[in-house]
Nucleic acid binder design. Structure first.
Lengths: 227, 227
DNA sequence: CGTGCCTTTGAGAAATATCAAAGCCTGTGG
DNA sequence: CCACAGGCTTTGATATTTCTCAAAGGCACG
């Protein structure tokens, strides 16, 4: 199956390549389709590949020694991920899970050096991704260290909305199903506390949720709850 | 003042350089002496330089919008720091403070690219440092999200001991002064809770502290408290 | 149309912060 | 060389947040 080079057209890491190079990059890639709930790679596995998410949503999570889950981040379409090699790691530090059906380009890790050398802008973009993640991790640490659960949950929903929102008639909808449990794993909390908070916010018309679908009705008031 | 190239002898980022290159690297550097409590650079400042700590101990900290302090990490002698440029940042994301008197080599950020290209092993070591920090941040997030204050405080002291310990007659001493307040800022807690924990552990002969000096008497039992 | 998640809500328990006060080092300046 | 100011530490009492335990109802998919 031949991939269409326009796939890479608007993706930052490959934006500065000409058509021939884009074709070359695609010829080196394998494409993977991953069903919701299936993992792309698992924490501790050999980092044999690096990845670009073409479509869908990825959840990155880790387990602590007691088996409690902590969700690190969600990846929107268009981003590089699983690039352990950029930081000299040879195993994946976390598990990547498809939340919705995903379309992913994967390249063997051995090609990393080549990409960095040969493709203009690739390394800069890759390290920009790392820089953003580091910065998000820093913010996360600040929040966990200084804020209450309510503020952290508000911030988590706000972030999901901003990074994965799609407009709808009643407000902004988060683009993939999110349970109370998931939010608690994103915030270091429990599903009960999250449920109580969401119930309250629903009464106040700040959010609305049905089953696993969350809509933000009033971004401004949600933002106020974060501090 | 001429610097002695043997300064760089055993430092990983420059380990693979020959004597001439080491001299060159030193000629490009400026050396700074920073007194305890003084800052090397501050959060939000232009990242004009990157740094190598020759001697002393650096504390890296951030303030949240409410002015609460969060301590990110402590840097031991021999490490690169303030390398925002490695991740494409152009301002420092945190403040670096001398905890003890420090001796620091600094280079203008503009030299970063040159160092990466010209000096064998420099970039690899720099990204290894970044990789380690990312991994530590990840662990920190896991701890904050899933563990209780007692476990986090135990872990924080254990880490200080392992990374900055010096042997003494009664146990391992942390190499710089540490207050209850500092530990609370490392763990997202309060000085009162930390004080109560340390008092208890002192009664149990796990640690001993006088004024701002902490000794770990029983590493094994402290380790048990971390989970 | 029932089984397995998902959600809600209450009651009580536990962890930790906050408030308050007092005592203790130590480095400094007279 | 002494006294004292300012930071550091301890400890009690109380308040607050959040978790844990428990139970029941709801939704969706096979």
């Amino acid at each position: 199956m031949k991939l269409d080079p326009s796939l890479l057209q608007n993706l930052p890491p490959f934006e500065r390549l000409n058509a021939a190079d884009r074709q070359e990059v695609l010829d080196l890639a394998r494409i993977r389709r991953v069903l919701p709930g299936k993992s792309v790679f698992e924490e501790g596995m050999d980092a044999t590949h690096f990845h670009l998410l073409l479509d869908g949503h990825i959840r990155v999570e880790r387990l602590n020694p007691e088996g409690e889950k902590v969700i690190s981040l969600h990846i929107p379409p268009g981003q590089l991920f699983g690039i352990a090699r950029a930081l000299g790691r040879d195993i994946y530090p976390a598990t990547a899970l498809a939340v919705t059906e995903c379309l992913i380009l994967v390249w063997p890790t051995a090609l990393w050096e080549t990409f960095v050398e040969r493709y203009d802008g690739f390394s800069t973009e890759a390290y920009k991704v790392v820089g953003n993640r580091v910065s998000e991790m820093n913010n996360r640490i600040m929040e966990l260290a200084t804020q209450h659960v309510e503020q952290r949950v508000a911030r988590a929903i706000l972030r999901l909305m901003q990074q994965h929102g799609r407009d709808s008639e009643i407000g902004t909808q988060i683009a993939f199903p999110v349970t109370r449990k998931v939010i608690s794993e994103m915030t270091g909390s429990t599903l009960h506390t999250v449920s109580r908070l969401l119930s309250r916010w629903e009464r106040q018309r700040i959010v609305q949720s049905q089953h696993r679908h969350i809509f933000v009705l009033d971004e401004g008031r949600l933002e106020k709850l974060t501090h």
